[in-house]
């Protein structure tokens, strides 16, 4: 089996994978970083969103081997010393999560959104979260959370 190497959450990692192994499978099974989830087969739900070289991407729609040499950040890589980062804190403050399954992908997408658009209005936030499905929150409090985070993150 081929070996793949990349940097995940700042640490150099490598592992043996099948050619068909997806990035999300490598993260979850090889590295046991199970915060990144799989909620669909069609690249629609966004539960698997991680950052690859700084951009949010769906780790279920990318082969592990495609990420050779890449810098990958997962939900586990956002906090420092167990402290929630401002986006995570905003989700908690605004009750932007219920069952928590979509949450890691939602947070990773929201991080990318705010990085590229520091002052998003409600419509912009809603449009930019179109790749992330949530069945619990009705999105209301997720939008509020992203608004708060954008403010605290210096937008």
């Amino acid at each position: 089996m081929p070996t793949v190497s990349m940097t995940v959450n700042g640490q150099a990692v490598s592992g043996e994978v099948e050619d068909r192994t997806l990035l999300v499978q490598f993260l979850r099974e090889n590295l046991r970083l199970t915060g990144t989830h799989v909620g669909c087969d069609t690249s629609q739900c966004g539960a698997c969103v991680v950052h690859v070289n700084g951009d949010s991407m769906k780790s279920c729609s990318m082969l592990a081997l495609q990420a050779e040499g890449a810098e990958v950040t997962t939900i586990e890589g956002l906090a420092s010393n167990g402290e929630l980062n401002p986006m995570q804190q905003a989700f908690m403050d605004n009750h932007g999560l219920q069952c928590g399954f979509c949450t890691p992908g939602m947070v990773m997408s929201a991080m990318d959104l705010v990085a590229k658009n520091p002052n998003p209005d409600e419509a912009t936030i809603r449009e930019n979260l179109e790749g992330n499905l949530c069945r619990c929150t009705g999105y209301h409090n997720i939008v509020k959370a992203v608004q708060q985070a954008a403010k605290t993150m210096g937008g």
């Binding site: 199970t34 915060g35 989830h37 939900i75 995570q88 908690m92 403050d93 928590g100 890691p104």
Partner: peptide, 19 residues
């Protein structure tokens, strides 16, 4: 009250069956 569940779920430390 802010939820007790949230930190683990937000940190990617939830434990779902597939985990």
């Amino acid at each position: 009250l802010k939820r007790k569940e949230d930190p683990r779920l937000l940190l990617g430390k939830g434990s779902y069956v597939d985990d």
